[in-house]
Simulated assay, not measured.
Amino acid sequence: VSGASALSPELVHFFRGAGIPIVEGYGLTETTAPATVNIPGAHRVGTVGLPVAGVTVKIAEDGEILIRGPVVFDGYHGMPKASAEAMEDDFFRTGDIGALDEHGFLRITGRKKDVIITAGGKNVYPTPMEEALRQHRLIEHVVVVGENRPFVGALITLDAEAFTQWALDRELTLTPAEAATDPTVLASIQEAVDQVNAGVSRAESIRRFRILDHPFTEDSGHVTQSQKLKRAQVIEDHAEDVEALYRR
C-alpha cells in the first residue's frame, strides 16, 4: 500500500511486472485515514482510486477536491474559525487539486496553494511537471516558478550519487559549481525539460531552468522531516536565482 507523496505510474508498472501489486490511496489527517483507495479488481494506475464506503468526493469549480462522509473530522480543537473555513457546506476543503475520471477514479494534480498564475493569467500546476522531471537520473529536486512572471522557469538540484556515477561514465571531473554550468550536464537536463514540455501547452512549458550547486536538505531548511520540499522557503531563499531566470 502506498500513500503520502504521489507514486509514479512507471514505478507501479515496474512492481506489477515483478509480481508485486501496489495499491495507492489518498487521505488527510482531517479524513482520519484514506478517503479513496485503489483495490484489487478496481484499480487504475495514475489515480488514487475510488471513494471508500460512505465517502463522497466532488471537484469544486476551481479544481479543489471536496470530501464528505463519516471519515471527515468534526473540526480543529479550539479553532472554530479555522474549522468553519475548512468546510464548504458539509464538504471538507482538502486544499488539493484534482479530477474525477469517467469511472469515478480520483487523480491528484497538485496543491491549491502551489498553483502558479503567470503574468499572462495562465494557471500552471507545477507538481506534475516537477514529478516528471524528477524521473531523470540526474535530478533530485525541482521547483517550478513563474508567479506573475512572463513565462515558467525551474530551479533544479542534482542527485549527488547519481551524478558521480554519470560523470565517471563520461570521464568527467566536475565540482558541483562546474556541473551547474557544464554544457554536457545542461544538455542532458534540457532533454528532460523538452520531454515534459511536449506534454503541456506553450504557456505552461518551462522556458528556462537553473541548476543550483547545492542540495535542498532538512539541515538547509528546505526539506521537511518527511522529505517533502518546502516550495515557499526555496523560492524565498533563492530569490536571486529566480531573478536570474528572467534577466535578459
Rank of each mutant, 00 (worst) to 15 (best):
F73R: 10
V142M: 00
A84I: 06
A132M: 10
S83A: 02
A198R: 05
D101S: 11
T47W: 00
F151N: 00
F91A: 02
A192F: 03
R111D: 01
V55G: 09
E243S: 06
F92G: 04
A86Y: 13
R202N: 07
T36M: 04
F163E: 08
A18M: 10
A132S: 09
Q135N: 05
N197I: 00
E204A: 11
T157G: 00
V143D: 01
I139G: 01
R93A: 12
A82R: 08
G104C: 03
G199L: 01
P80T: 07
L7P: 06
A203P: 01
I20M: 13
T184P: 14
I22Q: 12
K58W: 10
R170D: 12
A232L: 05
H103I: 05
F151P: 01
D182Q: 12
V193A: 09
M129S: 09
Q227V: 08
G69A: 00
P176L: 03
G49A: 10
E130N: 04
A232G: 04
T181I: 15
I59L: 11
S83H: 04
E236M: 08
V72I: 05
H141C: 01
V200H: 12
Q135S: 06
E24Y: 11
R107F: 05
T217A: 10
S226H: 14
D90I: 14
E64W: 12
W166P: 07
R210W: 12
T217Q: 12
V145A: 03
F15Y: 15
P128R: 04
A160H: 12
D241N: 13
T181R: 15
D90P: 14
V145H: 06
E30Q: 09
V72M: 04
G75C: 06
S188A: 14
T173P: 11
D213K: 10
V71N: 14
M129A: 08
E24H: 15
V48L: 01
A179D: 02
I108S: 05
D89I: 11
G69F: 00
E243N: 13
F14S: 13
V71R: 15
P176A: 06
L66T: 13
Q190V: 02
G69K: 01
G41K: 13
I39D: 04
R93T: 11
K81T: 15
G25D: 03
V200L: 06
L11P: 08
E218I: 13
G27V: 02
L158Y: 12
S205I: 00
H43M: 04
D96P: 10
V185S: 07
A84Q: 15
F151W: 07
R111F: 04
G98N: 15
